[in-house]
């Protein structure tokens, strides 16, 4: 299949069951820190969530807690340098690591009444444990991914570039299968 890249967003699968799209460029920062986070919160303009899987947002930026000292910040692509500079300004007072990972990943949108079932074809975790408004790093078909549950039946999946085509192929096959089969339990 065609290489998946954020430079060329594409509709990968589209049916009444579920739609899969690869999305365009997205600014992302991996933020690592510990201790009192108030200096960072000030620089970011939001309070970093401290429970793994929880999210916080401010206008134009969202933070997801991935580990006890790890967050991913999602923001507009052209705001990354400014945000890195703002964080850099508090580095001496509150040492941390802020690294742009904007180019590292592609986001896939999985949207539709059977989106959770599509994720369940290759994600061993119970998708229902990722509450609406939450997110998790987990594994999908052998690749580490971050899954965001944005709204009922709507998920985003961040996957490293080199895995994207493989993961997308799994999703395309699964979406086709869901479109072809009658609804379970009906």
């Amino acid at each position: 299949m065609k290489t998946i890249t954020s430079l060329t967003p594409a509709m990968l699968a589209d049916s009444a069951a579920v739609r899969v799209e690869s999305l365009g460029p997205q600014g992302r920062i991996s933020l690592r820190a510990r201790g009192d986070l108030s200096a960072l919160n000030g620089a970011l303009g939001l309070d970093l969530p401290t429970r793994i899987g929880h999210r916080a947002s401010t206008e134009g930026m969202e933070a997801l807690c991935l580990g006890p000292d790890e967050w991913v910040l999602v923001l507009a692509h052209d705001r990354v340098d400014a945000m890195l500079a703002a964080l850099g300004a508090v580095y001496d007072d509150h040492p941390h690591s802020a690294t742009s990972i904007s180019g590292r990943e592609v986001s896939l949108l999985i949207d539709g009444p059977r989106a959770a079932e599509l994720l369940a074809i290759a994600c061993p975790r119970d998708i229902a444990t990722i509450a609406e408004g939450a997110g998790r790093r987990t594994v999908f078909d052998g690749a580490s991914v971050v899954i965001w549950h944005d709204a009922p039946g709507r998920f985003r999946m961040d996957v490293w570039n080199s895995f994207a085509s493989f993961v997308a192929q799994t999703l395309i096959t699964g979406a086709r299968e869901l479109a072809a089969e009658p609804v379970e339990g009906g």
Partner: peptide, 13 residues
């Protein structure tokens, strides 16, 4: 140690 690691293999071509 006050140091963090981030995988950037895929950040760069």
């Amino acid at each position: 140690l006050n140091v963090w690691l981030t995988s950037t293999t895929e950040e760069w071509s």
